[in-house]
Design a protein around this nucleic acid. Structure first.
Lengths: 125, 125
DNA sequence: CAAGAAGGTCACCTGCAGGTAACCCGGTCA
DNA sequence: TGACCGGGTTACCTGCAGGTGACCTTCTTG
């Protein structure tokens, strides 16, 4: 049991890559949208502060999950999108999605309910 | 983008179930061994304190991932094993394992190296 | 030329997951 | 009868992920 090189090491790595309150959201937005401006992100994810979001984006970039791309230098437009690695991770996560929907539908529904962020005063895009 | 009910809610639920420094290890030990005494766990996971391990086990139990079973009342033997839900989660995590091994082999190797917990004075079981 | 907008930094604060160490309880055995 | 063992609790402490709000920089526009 001790020496058996239990194969959860990779799991740890994967979870570390996902550790961060907003990374999953970011990942999924990018997974479904391919291309997002940072500003758009922190308009779409209503409750995160610039600083924190940036931190997480940096970490994800460092982890090779996402790619940062500055387009025209003015007005400053910075796009983020998934790398291949990131896409692969997204794909792997689909299994977790499925698991949750199958085995914990109630909690999923709960989150959906909260997630309504109902006021959202403003632009519907 | 705002109303699209992005399907990451389930992901959040799944990650919440895994949130806890030691849960992944526990999960994987149980995944591969079916049946472990709590004492054995905190001998095998060298650096965790009783309290914390217990906390995590409780949470996992509450989440329905694991089942607690007391056997003979003396000497107190408490076995933990995965529920169906837990097993399913383990299975879903295999995808993450694979992802890490494919996309971040270096880090996986790092963890393997640290994980050697080389002294482990004692029983090889 | 002042105001505004996008992207980002900086200094500072806070809550809580995780950690430590001592203690409890029931029972056994030497 | 008291030391020990497995399982578990309790009181207390700490680090750091995450949060807040002001500020900077580069450019445009009225």
């Amino acid at each position: 049991m001790t020496e058996q090189q239990f194969r959860y090491c990779g799991l740890n790595v994967a979870l570390k890559a996902l550790t961060g309150k907003w990374k999953p959201v970011v990942l999924f937005h990018l997974f479904h949208n391919a291309d997002i401006r940072s500003n758009e992100l922190w308009r779409v994810i209503p409750k995160v502060s610039k600083k924190v979001l940036l931190e997480q984006l940096r970490q994800m970039e460092d982890d090779g999950l996402i790619l940062r791309e500055e387009r025209h230098h003015f007005p400053p437009e910075v796009y983020y999108r998934l790398s291949e690695k990131g896409k692969a991770l997204g794909t792997a996560l689909v299994g977790l999605e499925a698991w949750a929907n199958e085995h914990a539908p109630a909690q999923v529904a709960d989150i959906l309910a909260q997630e309504k962020h109902p006021p959202l005063s403003g632009q519907e895009k």
